[in-house]
Amino acid sequence: MARKFFVGGNFKMNGTLSSLKGIVNTLNEAKLTSETDIVIAPPSLYLIPLKEQLRKDIAVAAQNAYLASSGAYTGEISATQLHDVGIPWVIIGHSERRALFFEADDVVAKKTKAALDAGLSVILCIGETLQEREDDKTIEVVERQLTAVKKELKDWSKVVIAYEPVWAIGTGKVATPAQAQEVHHKIRAWAQKSISQDVAENTRVIYGGSVTAANSRELATQPDIDGFLVGGASLKPEFVDIINAKVSKL
């Protein structure tokens, strides 16, 4: 069975209730392909009101969850709490959290396991810095990040891997379709070698890093690119075109 295309919108720490409701209204009224799974990730404060307003064929995701289910962790939200209020997805391991909050590979791995154990689906972010790319360490880095998660997981069926080269996030730079395809192919080869043929064939590997309506259609033609995790463009009307990138008739 072919992997279903997947497009996520990471709003990051952007928007107000009013402006984000405007984005939801745009999505609610848009003609969107049924051949793509769609998820939006607003700031946690707005998860519930936007979920209540959003059309049913679009899911919501938290941008982070802590690795413990409860306890004295001021300011954190657990995967158990997210599941309790009906939030089905969470983004784990985004490079901004790895850098700003010093989330090491093992922490990301434990967060991923905690989210899955709580019943959530996970968008697992991996990717190399510009220096690592220039040092020809891209594959070494992504395999290291994935290996840490592999040590914690037995079931990958509710994981979407988001390859996001750090040098392309919010910079306007984007990996060429060939560059992105090469890494995605290597990720799938790693999964086949390290986990199983089934995981390699069925796990969706999506691309993130300055994805726009202008470049999404060509990226979507690559055989191992199963969708996108979109940052800034998810806050704009062009997000509709990115969602529909795989279906030219729309």
Rank of each mutant, 00 (worst) to 15 (best):
I77L: 14
Q131L: 12
V122I: 06
E103V: 05
A104N: 13
A41D: 08
T80V: 15
K111W: 04
L17D: 08
I92G: 01
Q53H: 00
A65N: 06
I139G: 06
A109I: 11
V85I: 15
S70I: 04
L45H: 02
L54F: 04
I58M: 07
G71E: 10
K150Q: 14
A65E: 00
I91L: 15
T36N: 03
G119V: 12
K56G: 09
K110T: 08
V90H: 11
A109E: 08
N14E: 13
F102E: 13
V107L: 15
I58W: 01
I23W: 01
N25W: 00
M13S: 13
A115P: 04
D106R: 11
C125S: 07
K12A: 08
V60K: 05
D105N: 15
K110Y: 00
V90R: 10
A62C: 11
E134K: 15
P42H: 06
K137S: 11
T80K: 15
L50H: 02
I77D: 03
D117T: 13
V107H: 03
A61Y: 03
I123H: 00
G86N: 02
Q63K: 09
G75I: 03
R133W: 04
I77C: 12
G127D: 05
G127F: 05
Q145R: 07
K151A: 15
L82A: 10
T112R: 03
Y66Q: 04
Y46V: 02
A99Q: 14
A109M: 12
A30I: 10
S18M: 09
I91K: 09
T138G: 04
T80L: 14
I48S: 09
D37I: 07
S18T: 15
P88R: 02
S44N: 14
E128V: 09
V24Y: 00
P49G: 04
A59M: 11
Q145H: 05
I48C: 01
A72H: 05
I91N: 06
K31Q: 14
D117C: 10
L120N: 06
F101G: 00
R133G: 04
E35N: 13
L17V: 01
Q53S: 06
L45W: 05
K21G: 08
I48E: 07
I92L: 10
I123Q: 04
H83S: 15
K51E: 03
S95K: 02
V141Y: 05
L47S: 07
A72D: 07
G15S: 11
A79S: 14
Y46I: 01
I92K: 01
N25C: 03
D84A: 15
K137H: 09
A59R: 08
L45V: 13
S19Y: 06
F102G: 00
R98C: 05
V60A: 10
M13D: 08
K51F: 02
T112D: 08
A148I: 11
V149H: 06
V122Q: 02
L120P: 00
Q145F: 00
H83N: 14
V39P: 01
I123C: 00
L47R: 06
E128R: 03
T33M: 08
S95W: 02
D136Q: 15
R133H: 14
I91P: 01
N64F: 08
L146E: 07
V107E: 03
Y73H: 14
P88F: 02
K31P: 00
